[in-house]
Computed example of a mutant assay.
Amino acid sequence: MENVFDAKDAQNYIDRINKLTSETPGLWGKMTVDQMLAHCCISYEMVYEPEKHKKPGSIAKFILKSFVKPKVVGEKAYTKNGPTAPQFIVTERRVFEDEKKRLIGFIQKTQQLGTSAFDGKESFSFGPLKSQEWNNMFAKHLNHHLAQFGV
């Protein structure tokens, strides 16, 4: 698995994103390319702009930590057409270039902050995570959706 904290790997993600156009079709799923970029930004918004999202309550957080966390932060890839958490669903169209720029900025910021900034950092839904868990979560999500759009 790629390392989102490594400059070369982060640049690889950016290069893949730069291959997308506003007309790139998805190979599966319902999202348009602009919606996919906005969807991918949500993981980063929960880190860098948490005020945009409602935090899960204690019961929901327990369920997320117990059942969802291992699938999200583990190394096994996501399956096609898997379930999407409600807060990650993007139904309205977005401005492709704006979402592309935001996602690239989040990838760059994460890489520049590095592993030490994420080791033990509190996750919106899962509590404190190790930097490797953050890496797995970000890398798996990016790989899944960039593959969805053929890049």
Rank of each mutant, 00 (worst) to 15 (best):
G57C: 09
G82R: 14
I59P: 04
F96Y: 14
G74V: 03
V90E: 12
E51Y: 10
I63P: 03
Q108E: 15
F88M: 13
P83F: 09
Y78G: 06
K80I: 07
T91G: 11
K69S: 06
A85H: 07
Q87G: 02
E97G: 02
K65C: 09
A77W: 02
I104T: 09
S58A: 13
K54S: 14
H53R: 10
K61A: 15
E97F: 09
G82P: 02
K100A: 08
V68N: 01
H53L: 13
K61E: 11
V95A: 12
F106A: 01
T91D: 12
P56L: 04
I104H: 04
D98V: 15
G74R: 04
L103Y: 05
V72R: 00
A60Q: 14
K52E: 09
P56N: 04
F106D: 02
K101Y: 00
V72Y: 05
G82Q: 14
K76I: 07
A77V: 01
K55E: 10
K52T: 07
V90N: 10
L64E: 04
K52H: 06
K71H: 02
A60E: 15
I89R: 14
F62A: 14
F88N: 10
I89Q: 14
T79F: 06
I59K: 13
N81V: 01
K71C: 01
D98W: 01
F67N: 00
F96M: 06
L103K: 06
D98R: 10
V90S: 08
K55H: 10
P70L: 03
K54M: 14
T91P: 01
K54R: 14
